[in-house]
């Protein structure tokens, strides 16, 4: 997915000379085409994320669109105050892109696992939070991110994510995309985990359950309409996110449901409120923490049983 993002950004930058890429020594093997095509609009400031973020802020204050880009938590948590005080408070056109959201960097350990980002970025005023599910969304989200005036957080996958959407999609910031129709229960995913959510929905068919799958690629602003519609039309809602159980997609959906007063059976699937202390590949960790399609399907069945 990171390759899709970089190719798309390069394509956009060819037409839009406001685009700058500001790095902190992480881009090897991906950003070279941009650096070669636009040496004047590419800055690598060394291993210095705070500086990276504020340089981007300064560039954006002069009417440009500055993209910061790094792995997992480095362009977010390391420089959170710079994002808050300088990017968001000034409300400037800085786009913060991370590669490897969630557990994508599995075996590299917790320093490289981005599992609180959605909650933290979502809490910043004026910040838009997007997490594309597959390559098709990743490309569309890049265009949408550039078009949106103001700060955007873009949680990119790593590589080789399976395709969720078969055909063309209508990607709009703040509007969920239905990846599968169904009237029994609604499964909402965000980011690359959504493919496993889709697989879970396919498994449920043999139990006679038709699950609706929503790709909630924008965690903020959240698509209230799609959530309330799901609450009205289906018998339960489950959120699935590769993120701490606290404050991310599940939290955002719960807020909508609680204030909507709809009282639908609801369950969040996320990482338990603890860190991963052992080595694991991305897929191995996901299975272990309850993100296998079978586990997700089981949670759905249990939720529907509760209802009866």
């Amino acid at each position: 997915m990171r390759t899709v993002f970089n190719k798309t950004l390069l394509k956009i930058a060819k037409k839009d000379e406001r685009i700058f890429l500001v790095l902190a020594d992480i881009g090897y093997g991906e950003i070279e085409p941009f650096a070669k095509a636009f040496p004047d609009r590419y800055f690598n400031v060394g291993v210095a994320e705070q500086n990276m973020t504020d340089i981007a802020c300064g560039l954006a204050m002069e009417g440009n669109i500055a993209v910061t880009y790094s792995i997992a938590n480095f362009p977010t948590l390391r420089c959170l105050e710079q994002i808050r005080n300088d990017v968001c408070y000034h409300n400037v056109n800085v786009k913060i892109v991370i590669i490897g959201g969630g557990l994508a960097y599995g075996a590299l350990g917790v320093s490289h696992q981005s599992t609180e980002d959605l909650a933290i970025m979502r809490a910043l005023p004026d910040m838009v939070v997007v997490a594309p599910a597959d390559f098709t969304e990743a490309e569309a989200a890049t265009y949408a991110m550039v078009k949106h005036p103001g700060p955007v957080y873009y949680r990119c996958g790593y590589k080789k994510e399976p395709r969720l959407h078969k055909g063309k999609i209508d990607f709009k910031i703040g509007k969920a995309i239905q990846a599968r129709a169904g009237g029994d229960i609604t499964l909402i995913g965000t980011g690359t985990i959504t493919y496993r959510v889709y697989q879970a929905a396919e498994l449920l068919v043999k139990d006679g359950i038709q699950a609706r799958v929503l790709s909630m690629h924008t965690v903020k602003p959240i698509d209230k309409e799609a959530i309330l519609k799901a609450a009205d039309e289906t018998r339960g809602i489950i959120t699935v996110e590769e993120h701490n159980i606290i404050g991310g997609l599940g939290g955002a959906v719960a807020e909508v449901l609680a204030e909507g007063g709809v009282g639908v059976p609801f369950k969040r699937i996320g990482l338990p409120d603890t860190y991963v202390h052992i080595v694991g590949s991305h897929d191995w960790l996901l299975d272990r923490f309850g993100f296998s399609p079978e586990s997700i399907a089981q949670v759905a069945k249990n939720l529907l049983k509760c209802r009866q």
Binding site: I55, C57, M61, N85
Partner: peptide, 20 residues
């Protein structure tokens, strides 16, 4: 020109403005 208050951030912003 810039909202400040948390120390240590202004010179990075100034760098960005100077580069631009």
């Amino acid at each position: 020109e810039a909202s400040t208050g948390s120390l240590g951030q202004g010179l990075s912003i100034a760098n960005g403005i100077a580069l631009a």
